[in-house]
Nucleic acid binder design. Structure first.
Lengths: 342, 342
DNA sequence: TTGAAAGCGCTAACAC
DNA sequence: GTGTTAGCGCTTTCAA
């Protein structure tokens, strides 16, 4: 390990004061062109970069945005984090990523961690903010933190000043149902998976029932099956339950993983997608096109989603206002899991 | 935004000097129990955390480890990053994650970025380090950086002092081939996907041929098909090519994504897995159990892999030695994509 | 324009 | 045990 080169070394070699070097570094003041060139040359020669810690000590900026999500292995979070990172990079920020693995305690810890790391802003992707009813202790924690660091969330956290960016659940489900309504053979609609204490899912279900009424389609309670796990197992269990009560024409799956489980249950029952039963899902992760048939799925424009998250965060960092709530418009991507209209 | 509370405020309120507060903060020196308790109380009351930047300025430690990978959306990287993060957290470190998206230029940039952020160590997951023949410019860059910051890699970077942690390609392929040899009906073995300029893949292929000879099985050049893309398309293309030349008994796929593509090609040709053709793949990501039939796949013990990466990094950070090269032992996970022995 | 010097918040060596 | 003080590397007044 070499001795770190500092602004002092540069100043010495250039025969100027450190302030002058600092001026060319920040560009905040005029320096005589000739000197400036000489200094820049030396900076380049050593590939010198000012110590970001020392800088941060002064203007209390680290140019790091912390992201807290449940599990980056979930393609939904991966897709979102990646677009966040790109948007952040474009604006000179870096991402510090943390996974809570759905552990509320760990989420608390990581929140602390992030604030201790002096990140400039924190983005909370779901987690406690996904809860239908806000955990007060958590909200209090976030409140303490957001006194110092702007916090942007997906979901909702009552009693906190956090900016919220969310998928428009109502629009998502409306699109699904409108699409379904164009196919006359779809009479019995099922909804598989998702928890009743997760705000987005609750929004989906509420709209599901509303649209059913609106479209004069029957709501069959036995075909509306929740499940604690947003994964394959959840889908498998939910579909097994549904099939005990009959055979729907189409099943709406709360996410792609659930759809995979639903397909497995269907396969176990010798039912073919989409010939016997059609499928629509939410999230449109890469899983949609990985499995056969490819899933017709609601897509979220992850690029816009991520950019919005970062944009709000940066605005808040810079003391500018950011919208309290922003809704992301979903779009239905039609593939093969849904029988063609008739 | 509230005024930041500092060590001075704590000292003032406790009626002691800042050094005393610092002592209870670091625990590096004895403080009278009574005072200690009083100070701790005030610290807790304000939920005070010492400014990590100021601390870092002194001991030049940020407690952040930077990870550079191609694309976190790839389940292989996601699995690895997650275990790295856990290992890092357990040791008081945080992760700064960057994705290069396979763009060599961006990789350069991010490397710079990370070093500018003063991360304590950098972990390079593949990227340029995956190259069979080292990119000299890149190696030079890494050399400059590793003068200041320890760099740990998967892959190889000739001419750099980086510690390397790698999957044992030879052992992985040996296990696959030994397993294959237990099934007497397997005579014609194919290998699908992977590039000839990626070091791990090259290792796999070399061992593939060696084992074929050793097991007195025929090497059929037309059944050994590379492909630039480690994804579904790559697998589909490779398998289409193989099928033009005949029907192998089993195809070894360079990774899970490739296996998915291979299965699609097979389905297009009305061939069933494993009844008509068996499949084995590498990586054992969640995709292995997502698709039907579940893939028999070589698994890497991601927990050990991640821990090893972090352990080496931390050792280097602390000036302790770390092994130049560590090999991770793979294990074959037997599922359904491979016909049972006969 | 430029340099000297104060100070960001903290730790550690040095006195007492 | 405890306080005083000198930095860590940088930015930013304040004078010149």
């Amino acid at each position: 390990m070499q001795k770190n080169i500092t602004i002092v070394d540069i100043a010495k070699e250039a025969g100027v004061s450190i302030s002058t070097v600092s001026r060319v570094l920040t560009g905040n003041a005029r320096v005589k062109e000739e000197k400036k060139a000489r200094i820049q040359e030396i900076i380049d020669k050593y590939d010198f970069h000012p110590n970001i810690l020392a800088r941060g000590l002064i203007n209390t900026r680290t140019h790091v945005i912390g992201i807290l999500c449940a599990d980056i292995r979930n393609p939904y979070y991966a897709a979102l984090c990646v677009t966040c990172e790109q948007a952040a990079n474009e604006n000179g920020y870096n991402i510090m990523l943390c996974n809570s693995f759905g552990d509320r305690l760990k989420e608390f810890e990581l929140l602390d961690n992030l604030s201790r790391q002096r990140v400039d802003a924190i983005i909370l992707l779901g987690g406690a903010a996904d809860d239908l009813v806000t955990d007060h202790e958590y909200a209090e924690k976030v409140n303490m933190i957001s006194d110092q660091i702007p916090v942007v969330i997906t979901g909702r956290l009552d009693g906190t000043p956090c900016s919220r960016i969310n998928i428009d659940a109502t629009e998502a489900m409306t699109q699904v149902m409108n699409y379904i309504s164009t196919i006359s053979s779809f009479k019995k609609i099922a909804f598989a998976g998702g928890r009743s204490d997760v705000i987005f899912t609750v929004g989906l279900r509420a709209c599901f029932r509303k649209m059913l009424r609106q479209l004069k389609l029957e709501y069959i309670p036995e075909f509306d099956v929740s499940n604690p796990h947003y994964d394959e197992t959840g889908g498998l269990e939910a579909m097994d339950t549904i099939l005990k009560h009959g055979k729907p024409d189409i099943v709406i799956c709360v996410n792609d993983f659930t759809a995979v489980g639903v397909m497995k249950s269907l396969a176990n029952h010798q039912l073919k997608v989409p010939d016997d039963i059609s499928l629509i899902s939410f999230d449109d992760t890469f899983i949609s096109t990985l499995i056969t048939p490819h899933l017709t799925s609601i897509s979220y424009n992850y690029v816009q989603f991520g950019s919005q998250l970062i944009e709000s965060a940066i605005n808040l960092i810079e003391g500018k206002p950011a919208p309290t709530e922003t809704l992301i418009h979903p779009t239905l991507v039609i593939r093969e899991s849904c029988k063609k209209g008739a």
